[in-house]
Amino acid sequence: MSLKRTIPMTTVSGFGVSAVFILTILNILMQNMPSNIYRAGDELLKLNATDGVANSVTTVVVYFRGFDTLGEIAVLFIASLGIGLMLTNNNLNNISQENSNFMLQIGAKLLSPVIFIFGLYIMIYGHLSVGGGFQGGVIIASGILLLLISSNGFHISHKFVEIFETLAGVSYVVIGLIGLIILDSFLGNFLPYDISKMGLLLSGGIIPIIYIIVGIKVGSEMSVIVDNMLKRNIDD
């Protein structure tokens, strides 16, 4: 038995190619030291104070990159639609018709109002503190998940949720188009935003309104996803 092992040619060439790649990246990094890199983010954060919103992340997500947020919501809507189409089957029944654990039922009654209030707080104060529409909507959807699995006779009506979701999506686009008409830019801030009111609940013009709309849309979509996934086969 010889200790010398034959290393495959592909391994050697792989290591060689990765070494050349890493050396190239290091070379580029050494030439562009951090002092020379133009910081685009700092320029945007300097502009943040002019909108009267205390949380700079909210300004970036909703105002500077508002069109991206519209695209993210569209992606979530397509995912919800796909799950709904995939799980459409007559053999599925709702899990909320079955009896669950007694502790779970009492715990859900106790905890779900707190979860809903917390989600609404995160959603409405998104322009002042951490969080925002996305996170608040998902917290509300997790409260609905708790109610669904605890089977207190709770079920969500898909038509009602779809009306909410459609109204939220349409009003997002309508607010953007009003900004386009008045200020010549999509999602322009056409409501008054006073810098002296920074930190108050009513500040920042359209930014809190848009984040609440995002929260309603994300919450209803995630609730529909969770409700569709909870259905199970009758044969099981």
Partner: peptide, 9 residues
């Protein structure tokens, strides 16, 4: 903000 998103989602 990222921490809250990671915790929730």
């Amino acid at each position: 903000d990222v921490a809250l998103t990671q915790a929730v989602i």
